[in-house]
Amino acid sequence: MNTASLESPAPKPAREKERIKKVSIVVSKGSLDGVYPGLIMANGARMDGIEANLFFTFFGLYAVMNGYQDKIQISTVGNAAMRVPGAKGFRLPTLLGLLPGMSAFATSMMKKEMERLDIPPVSEFVQMISDAGGHLYACKATVDMFHLAPGDFVPAMERVLTVGDFYELAAGGEIIFT
């Protein structure tokens, strides 16, 4: 019996949907809510076979710096949308946000929720994105301004780039600034 004739082929999509093939994401902020969106978007891109570059600049550099990755916190000061104890709770008065330990407390609350959703700590996430074939770079202007050297970064950070290098790498894809 010829089984081939019994197989039905995969249906062809009505029209080829246009797909994003490459994203280059700039992470410029060093707070927890400044760092994670870029990491989640880069990881999500790789999960769907989209090429992903991450470019860390200014305080975003802490996401790829040895010894600082998992010290990233939510800012409870100057964060006008901050509510306690949850997203639909009371607005946190600015002065209370100043109290010692408030940032650490808010961070630990959010980290618990993130762990529940399988969102890894920054250090693990950065390595995961690198293992997934994502590329991570540091901004040369900030590295010079902060007096840093390549040895200050985790191995997943591939190299220090100038803005020109970044645009070259980003060619043909989308650029997202976070």
Partner: peptide
């Protein structure tokens, strides 16, 4: 990612 090139999730 090597086993399922082009995006393992889906």
């Amino acid at each position: 990612y090597e086993l399922f090139p082009g995006g393992p999730a889906k």
